[in-house]
């Protein structure tokens, strides 16, 4: 089977630091691929390279077999890759609905929208409310409240809802449960499986081993800027995974990348 998202030989240097060192990457259609690695292993840099936030110095990326070169997150988004960044990328003073539609606002039909470029706020608010309800985030009282007035978990929920609502080909989640309580984490994990059941593959970057082992179909282990191995959670234990990513164990030859 052809990977939906494939990268070969990605390199990114920041001065003398090599963040991505000839890394390879494969995401199969319909799967949840977890990406794990020690701090500073270059997980985030690699993910940013495939989501357009970082332009790699060299290497190639293919989406559905076609070579792509993203120069900005906007281009990746237009290609159907939606990302939830660790820092969430929201404008605190703007409302939930404004944030969900940032960069892809809906305009009113007819004269108002075409010539006066008026936003269709009721439609955007209704859509945002639906998406948050699906996520079980109905606890948010007012869709027009500023994002800065939400708790960390609620903000995370809004960011995940935004990605799930608009990601048509790939959804990338960078540490989606890091700031969440037990209950909210559970909801996000359920949402991840929900998105997968709609046929959209997910890249999940996480430090939380129980979460990774619970939802992932395959686990990409990143070490020292490149892919070390790809394992199936059923074949390995969590301690094996930790041993691999910290270098305490050599990858068995059948899974080594």
């Amino acid at each position: 089977m052809e990977p939906i998202l494939k990268a070969r030989g990605l390199v990114k240097r920041y001065g003398k630091v090599t963040a991505i060192d000839k890394a390879d990457f494969d995401l199969m259609p319909g799967e949840i691929l977890a990406v794990i690695g020690d701090n500073g292993a270059g997980k985030s840099s690699m993910i940013k390279a495939v989501s357009g936030a970082v332009v790699p110095d060299s290497g190639k990326i293919w989406l559905e077999g076609k070579e792509v070169q993203f120069r900005s997150p906007i281009e990746a988004r237009e290609a159907g890759i939606e990302t939830v960044y660790q820092q969430l990328a929201m404008s605190p003073a703007l409302s939930i609905a404004d944030n969900m539609f940032m960069g892809r606002e809906l305009r009113k039909p007819g004269f108002l929208g075409t010539y006066l470029r008026m936003l269709d706020k009721p439609a955007m608010q209704a859509f945002a409310r639906d998406k948050l309800n699906e996520l079980g985030l109905a606890t948010i009282q007012n869709i027009n409240q500023a994002v800065e007035s939400l708790s960390g978990g609620q903000r995370q929920g809004v960011a995940v809802a935004r990605a799930a609502a608009f990601g048509s080909k790939v959804v990338i989640l960078d540490e989606p449960t890091a700031a969440l309580g037990v209950k909210e984490s559970r909801r996000v994990l359920e949402l991840i499986q929900d998105v997968r059941s709609r046929g959209i593959p997910i890249i999940l970057i996480s430090h939380n081993m129980p979460h990774v082992f619970e939802v992932a179909d395959r686990i990409h282990i990143h070490r020292l800027g490149k892919r070390l191995a790809v394992i199936k959670p059923a074949d390995f234990t969590m301690s094996d995974a930790v041993a691999l990513m910290t270098g305490a164990m050599e990858p068995p030859s059948e899974v080594a990348a």
Partner: peptide, 16 residues
């Protein structure tokens, strides 16, 4: 408003 709030966040969420 988004750019004035946080230009990096605006960029990542798709604002030119």
């Amino acid at each position: 408003y988004a750019v004035g709030d946080d230009p990096e966040a605006a960029e990542l969420s798709g604002v030119d």
